[in-house]
Write a protein that binds this DNA or RNA. Structure first.
Ligand SMILES: [Mn+2]
Ligand SMILES: [Mn+2]
Ligand SMILES: [Mn+2]
Ligand SMILES: [Mn+2]
Lengths: 220, 220
DNA sequence: CGAAATATTTAGCCAAAGCTAAAAATATAT
DNA sequence: ATATATTTTTAGCTTTGGCTAAATATTTCG
């Protein structure tokens, strides 16, 4: 159906589109570790296939068809991440790289049977929602810890990066999905955040870290 | 590491090598639904990488390294087939096509964790043995039904083709791996074989079919 | 506004993996 | 032992998806 390269472009465009309404060539190239010239070429190919619309020197944005494809690829990626983590015992810092390969196995039957087998999971190991067959997915309230000013306890519900060392650091600090914490203080000097776990232990984390940890109010 | 094309060539050469000691360009091209010219090109590439040795106009055969790679790909293929069949509920006629894609996901960690998760299965859904990490696998006694002359009951332990309609036909006739049967008669005229299942029902199958059903003596 | 900086596209390469058609080597048959 | 047939290789072309360098468009800033 679609080549691996095409699928990777579509997925990247989809992700970039959440932030900017139109996706710029340079941003796309950066996201895919390639060059602007290559991105321009592929954009033209994808436009010819009706997956996106493109205006020279301005940028591109996915069509309905393009979005549907993107959500299907994301569905495959996150279902495999869940499988690797839940069934095979991979660490959450290991699953992304393998899922990058598995997501390109094209068989809707496989995807749907996997979904059934896993019990229709709603979130992947990083807290990202898994689209269903129609592309619908749970909305996630995602307040970065850097903006959480409430005294009330918060629950970690997602992370903003797939970087291995970032995720390893979180595991080390016992900051996993579902874990409860309270923000003790935001230091103005460098935006360091001091927090306390349910276990009682308290420590500080950098602003960079705080920006990539998403929390929500603890449900009662 | 290796491209999908390279892996497919290595796997095909390995399979052809069981029959002929040296693999001929035309046979390889036929196996891969490609042309002799393309096969020649790839053979040269694989020789340069040390995976096979090649003599012009004569043929090629895998080196130690090449065989090791081939067995690893076959291991991945058969483990995925087992997974699809056992865990996801795929029919045995559906698994091969999907496994053709999954086999190219390159992660030894994934392969080994999958093996553990599946409980170190010895055979895939078609009765083919699954190599372990070192490339060792169970030897299968495989007498085709066309050559089974004994009156003693036999157990189906493998099939000689992955063709979908062939496997569907077997399912229809209740001829699955592990099933018991007795050969009633070989008809000389067209080599038709008459057989009887443990259920009591008896019927005939064509020579072509009989050649692709492997049996072994029922263990007591 | 106009110059400089930045972003994007175009032009012209390259490697992988396929193809056809022609040439060359090997095998077969009279 | 030739002549014919078959097999294999070579040569030259195609597509996909990269790249660099140069050209062009857009944005920013003095
Ligand atoms: Mn991921
Ligand atoms: Mn990918
Ligand atoms: Mn198979
Ligand atoms: Mn394959």
């Amino acid at each position: 159906m679609y080549t691996v390269a095409e699928e990777n472009y579509i997925k990247s465009i989809y992700h970039l589109q959440r932030h900017q309404k139109s996706v710029h060539t340079n941003d796309l190239a950066a996201e895919l570790n390639t060059r602007a010239a290559s991105a321009t070429d592929m954009i033209k190919k994808l436009e010819a296939k009706g997956l996106l619309k493109y205006e020279k020197y301005y940028g591109c944005s996915l069509t309905k068809t393009g979005k549907k494809l993107a959500l299907n690829i994301i569905r495959r990626h996150r279902l495999w991440e869940f499988f690797l983590s839940e069934k095979l015992g991979f660490g959450w810092e290991e699953v992304h790289a393998v899922a990058e390969q598995l997501e390109h196995v094209q068989s809707d039957l496989l995807t749907d049977k996997l979904d059934v087998y896993l019990g229709f999971p709603l979130f992947d190991p990083h807290g990202d929602p898994i689209p269903d067959t129609l592309g619908n997915m749970a909305a996630r309230e995602q307040t970065p810890l850097s903006l959480w000013t409430s005294q009330a306890p918060a629950e970690v519900c997602g992370v903003g990066s797939q970087d291995e060392s970032f995720l390893e650091m979180l595991s080390l600090k016992q900051l996993e999905i579902g874990c409860r914490l309270t923000v003790l203080r935001h230091f103005n000097f460098d935006k360091t955040v001091e927090l306390q776990l349910a276990t009682g232990s308290s420590f500080t984390i950098s602003e960079m870290l705080a920006k990539n940890i998403f929390v929500k109010p603890v449900e009662v």
